[in-house]
Design a protein around this nucleic acid. Structure first.
Lengths: 341, 341
DNA sequence: CTGAAAGCGCTTACAG
DNA sequence: CTGAAAGCGCTTACAG
């Protein structure tokens, strides 16, 4: 039980009677190694508990299999699932997630430097903005960058189609013949909010409808609840309201209930994101569900292809938009449906 | 804009007219470097965009500043916050999180190997079990391991005091003079469930009370809702019920509402964990709040101290329990209080 | 199919 | 205060 030092490929080589190169090749899956040799090496390695040192491999091979993931804080209810999905999917691809956190109102520059120092193979930035200089710095390090759920003309981006989602909600409202319509927008100036609301408002306008009530929240439950209190204490009866995030929509629904109102009979509510709580019985919220698995898969497939390509730095920046799915639930059910139930 | 290759300390040394050692020392914060030299090096580095390569540093210095975090999936509602807190706190300490995911029902062995190959300085395992052999393997790699929110006699562990939390809920129930009491337990055989329920049941027994209703869920909202439906369709009126997780408690409350019952007037409900949704107006759930920040800080302080110590491998394994905080909310409010409101 | 050897980009005694 | 040099544990042409 004395302090046996860490085993290295040299130790294994000596014990197996081969060269260090052969040990290395064995673990790299080099098919040129003779099967018997390979087995002998593996046997010795197993016996002494040797596994390759990825840090040394990274330095030597100039590729770490590390992917940096920069996330804003979890306030949004959506990101924890995104993060988990990335971690899992990367693991399956033999890569690993080096996770960084930034404040939701900051940009990612601060931590990007550190990420690059770990020689990550690629960088995924979710819910933060990056400066053009930083993108330049990443290019100098040969590190491709992907913006997740945000778009930029200067960075490859993957995002749900927020604009189209807003339009889908508007279409639903029109189909359900709601007339007195409200909008609870998200944080002013954020791209997400701008796209969701402009899709919604634009489509309504095409039908000659203008919302009679507009308020603004910060995407949180709390702000939705507060907006709801204000709305329901005013004398502005609405047929329906679209909230730019699920959390706000649920807050607003709770405020409605506290004000003695019934959703959807007194007011219909729709959200955006499709987080699990929207399915909860008490909520049953109509929403645009983000295609999370597809978003993550698209990002990682793109990343893999980029890493395999020699010429990615010369390729034009692209934005990939994936459609969300309208989930119609009780919060916007037409009354016949409710009765039929 | 030609493909300038990555800058190294050798390049900077040449351009600054010093040795590579001096560049290295400058970035390591070695105080022996003469201030003027230091400034010159830093100026050149900045100009050419040089930053040290952490992978090379890791290989050379035998310490990566990487901490492996192994997490079960986010089903529990609690882990996303834990993960974010760890990532943030590690960043502040100049370390970084290499995150791995395991299925909630599996143990962490599968991914531990990979973690070790990245030469992480330490390993934090949340919500998974580890085999003794794996702990042994970590010790061979000189990698200290910490179990988070689970305890083990063979691994250093940090956990909320689940047993005491269960007792606190029982105390509250007794104080509120609830007599017909129910329990919605979590997954059988999990340590968390065992401790929470045995604390609760033990304390009740001391008061001569035996629950008249016991059911079991899997910690999720869905299982809580299902248990609630069953309970409220049976003829077992209860004064109060303790659910072993917040998610189950909220599911059960929603089922109560759907059955036309009022919480707390018809039935009082208490949960465990203190996740943000318990504060939501519609829920206002009494619960034991996990001291998340303190749990994370305790873990990292312990880790830092361990890494600084030469003798940690000879020290006895310890378990650190932190008390949770009883948050009394509307779901268990005595009726007078509600009227007084 | 295998080995000897250079090299990845740092840290760190050692010498001055 | 600074430099020359060994070494961290791998990968990968190159030679056979």
């Amino acid at each position: 039980m004395a302090d046996q030092k860490r085993m290295t490929s040299v130790d294994v080589a000596r014990m197996a009677g081969v060269s260090q190169s052969t040990v290395s090749r064995t673990f790299a899956g080099d098919t040129r190694v003779k099967p018997e040799t390979r087995e002998r090496v593996l046997a010795v390695a197993k016996e002494v508990g040797y596994v390759p040192n990825f840090i040394a491999r990274g330095l030597s091979a100039q590729t770490t299999n590390l992917v940096g993931i920069v996330m804003a804080d979890v306030a949004s209810m959506f990101y924890p699932y995104v993060l988990q999905e990335f971690v899992r999917a990367l693991q399956k691809r033999g890569k690993h997630a080096l996770v960084f956190n930034v404040r939701s109102d900051g940009n990612a520059d601060d931590v990007l430097q550190e990420t690059l120092q770990y020689q990550v193979d690629a960088l995924i930035i979710a819910a933060s903005t990056v400066s053009d200089e930083m993108v330049e710095a990443c290019a100098r390090m040969d590190t491709p960058v992907f913006l997740f759920n945000r778009t930029s003309p200067h960075v490859n981006s993957i995002c749900v189609d927020n604009y189209q989602g807003g339009r889908q909600i508007a279409n639903l409202f029109v189909r359900n013949e709601y007339e007195r319509i409200g909008l609870l927008a998200g944080i002013e100036g954020t791209q997400t909010n701008q796209q969701r609301t402009s899709g919604f408002l634009g489509r309504l306008k095409e039908h000659g409808i203008t919302p009679i009530y507009e308020a603004r929240g910060d995407y949180t439950y709390k702000s939705g609840y507060a907006a709801g209190r204000e709305l329901f204490h005013s004398d502005t009866p609405l047929d329906a309201i679209f909230c730019a995030s699920d959390a706000m929509a649920i807050g607003l629904m709770d405020a409605a209930r506290d004000a003695g109102l019934n959703v959807p009979n007194d007011i219909a509510v729709a959200g955006f994101d499709g987080v699990p709580v929207t399915e909860w019985a008490a909520n049953s919220l109509t929403t645009i569900e983000q295609p999370m698995t597809a978003l993550v898969k698209t990002t990682l497939d793109w990343m893999d292809k980029t890493l395999a390509s020699q010429t990615w730095k010369t390729q034009a920046t692209r934005v990939k938009l994936l459609p969300g799915t309208l989930m119609q639930r009780r919060s916007t059910a037409a009354s016949e449906l409710i009765i039929a139930e």
